[in-house]
Design a protein around this nucleic acid. Structure first.
Lengths: 383, 383
DNA sequence: TATACTTAATTTAGTCAATATATAAAGTAG
DNA sequence: CTACTTTATATATTGACTAAATTAAGTATA
């Protein structure tokens, strides 16, 4: 069991001061004392420590409001850098960010091979390229976080991927050995949720559900600023919840899973002609030209999404739901179909404003991964 | 923002020591120092405080294992008492417990009137009777917690009750004024979940879902030992999630809600003949006599329960699900029907051992309410 | 029975991070 | 130029924890 002592007090207050500087910089010692409730002496001492750590620096004097001019402090966002990865079934997005999550460099690469060894080589090559451009800094590369479309257990092993062979690769182990930095592996919906919470559409909320609609449907749930994980890290994986128990059989063994109706795969299938798959770019193009068949399909898509989103509202009682889908982002009219389903003429209907579209869009997963790594780093230097 | 200081350290360690005494008493100061990691001097000091508070006492010397004999400490479970209430649509259960959740006195009363003012009088009368038997103790009645079948907002106001008029009564305000003690109001599924977690079937788990099946279906979710609440306190209220979007219209405005299929109300309706309602005692009786119609109905009941429970597993990834229903408790064969639905012949099937039956049974809600009050009290005296 | 060893709990002295108060630094206002 | 403000630091004190020594009370063994 863990007992408390003065070291803990110091760490807690250090984190408190650093957080406040990050969120309100530039800020003076006096102001910090005021908002944190800490004694001025204590703040000065903590600030001295943080200056030693290169986590903050002084930018000179601020404006006087009738007395001695304050020394303004700012967060040193370039004290270190992190890499967030979005590994898809057929693409690999890598972002290099500073400690505020601002992208310094990024790469988007299509994955041509389905062989795990090819992906492994590709990933390491691309990472080496990104790492080579990291500026000189006190902490350098603080770590790598990987968002993956599949089930991640509590040991951060990728145990199941529906549409790829990536679960054969022990990412954490390989990347830690290769680059000698901490590596985290997370489900893409969880990293996406965290990204939107830190930098995106959910910045000002603490109870959110993030829904990413790709080939399948992934869900990440944040409650009181904490990602919920469940026993095996599968919390919120709602793609295979049943919305019609008489419906068609799913690959998971159940009938009428949400994914069968409201995934991009389902949308594509509804538009397939002569066994010819439709590209999503085509769908978008035709939608913008008011192609009736596509508009009809998108309306149905929205209806089915709405069914599951209604379940999400009834299940998690969130402040907001963030939708992450390339078609919805480019053609927001789909939201109207969803809202029609969500809000029948009834008193118990949820607030329509609960629906938001991803602000980070195609970078949500990678930026969220970076954000998770940054949080871990900040927790580490202040503990 | 809240900063840390020495007072916080002391409180944290006080709670640590008290918890350890509660869970392992009788225990010596030396042993406490060993398991908590705190210095022997610190433990002695904290123990002295707790002795002062009458929260623990010494029961004399324990056995020597080759040295000075230890002084054994135990939790003073009679330092105070609490009342937990289970308010149903037509019944009122009250339990008076000590600080370990052991029932000292209880009352089960049928509510004949549907008038709020009648219930209010009845409740106060019964509470006065229970309070009159509380033994002399340092803290006396530490508070009252009320579990209710309806929606409770973050201000502990009962905002909606599907089958009664109880939401008109400002319980918290009335009971606090009448008895001058802290009063909490919680959804019955949340108190039940907490009760099973503290004293019942889920004692050794930290990620649990509790499902109470009455006229409707209530769900309480505990993740990492914390009750999840959501924005409006509706987290986990899954009775109105859709399991068949083509299904019949529900009073909530949606189609095919789980409650329409898997509540006791649904079971009763499936067995209704000539517009004559069936009593649950009859159902049980006929089931035990192998009445085919009832067995069939229960099998269907189990199937529909299974559909929703599968969704719960896919949604919350819990260690265990606790089922609270009087018919299932008395006739556990229903579990087999549920398990058949839960586990089709498929690799992704969940572990059948995930299903547990309530250990606290008809007292789950009231005992859970008491447990919540006790937790609040312990948090209070150590803060 | 005497001696050595163990274990339990307290006493005493010291550490560390916080606070309170006083002081210094550097401005504004009239 | 003087009085007042605001910012930041210096000094002394407080309080919770720790370490080491001490007291207390047993067991083990020759």
């Amino acid at each position: 069991m863990i007992s408390a002592d003065q070291a803990l007090v110091k760490k807690m207050n250090k984190k408190l001061v650093l957080r406040e500087i990050i969120h309100t910089s530039p800020v003076s010692r006096a102001k910090l004392s005021e908002v944190t409730g800490l004694n001025k002496t204590t703040v000065s001492s903590q600030v001295a420590d943080l200056l030693d750590d290169n986590l903050i620096f002084e930018i000179g004097q601020g404006l006087s409001s009738g007395g001695r001019r304050p020394v303004m402090l700012v967060f040193n966002k370039n004290a270190g850098f992190t890499i967030g990865i979005d590994l898809g079934v057929d693409y690999l997005t890598i972002v290099l960010t500073d400690l505020e999550g601002t992208i310094v460099s990024e790469s988007h690469q299509k994955i041509d091979s389905t062989l795990p060894c090819d992906l492994q080589k590709l990933m390491i090559t691309l990472l080496e390229k990104q790492i080579s451009v990291i500026p000189d800094s006190r902490y350098g590369l603080i770590g790598i976080c990987l968002g993956v479309p599949g089930l991640v257990n509590n040991d951060q092993e990728l145990t199941f991927t529906p549409n790829s062979n990536w679960s054969e690769i022990p990412f954490k182990q390989i990347l830690e050995q290769t680059f000698q930095v901490p590596v985290f592996v997370e489900n893409e919906a969880n990293t996406g949720a965290y990204g939107e919470k830190e930098y995106g559409a959910a910045k000002h909320f603490k109870n959110i559900v993030y829904v990413s609609i790709n080939a399948g449907i992934g869900t990440g749930v944040i409650q009181n600023n904490e990602l919920l994980k469940g026993k095996n890290g599968l919390f919120g994986e709602m793609g295979h919840t049943v919305i019609d128990f008489n419906g068609p059989r799913c690959t998971c063994g159940n009938r009428g899973c949400w994914e069968l109706y409201a995934s991009e795969k389902a949308l594509h299938q509804s538009l397939m002609s002569n066994n010819q798959t439709v590209m999503w770019q085509d769908i978008l193009h035709r939608a913008k030209q008011n192609d009736p068949q596509v508009l009809q399909a998108l309306d149905t898509f929205g209806f089915y999404l709405g069914i599951g989103l209604k379940n999400i509202i009834n299940t998690f009682d969130p402040e907001v739901i963030i939708l992450r889908n390339r078609i919805i982002e480019a053609f927001p009219q789909v939201l109207n179909s969803i809202r029609h389903t969500l809000v029948p003429n009834h008193t118990h209907a949820p607030d329509v404003n609960i629906l938001l579209v991803s602000a980070l869009k195609h970078n949500a997963t990678a930026l969220g991964a970076a954000a998770i790594m940054i949080k871990h780093f900040i927790d580490g230097v202040t503990a």
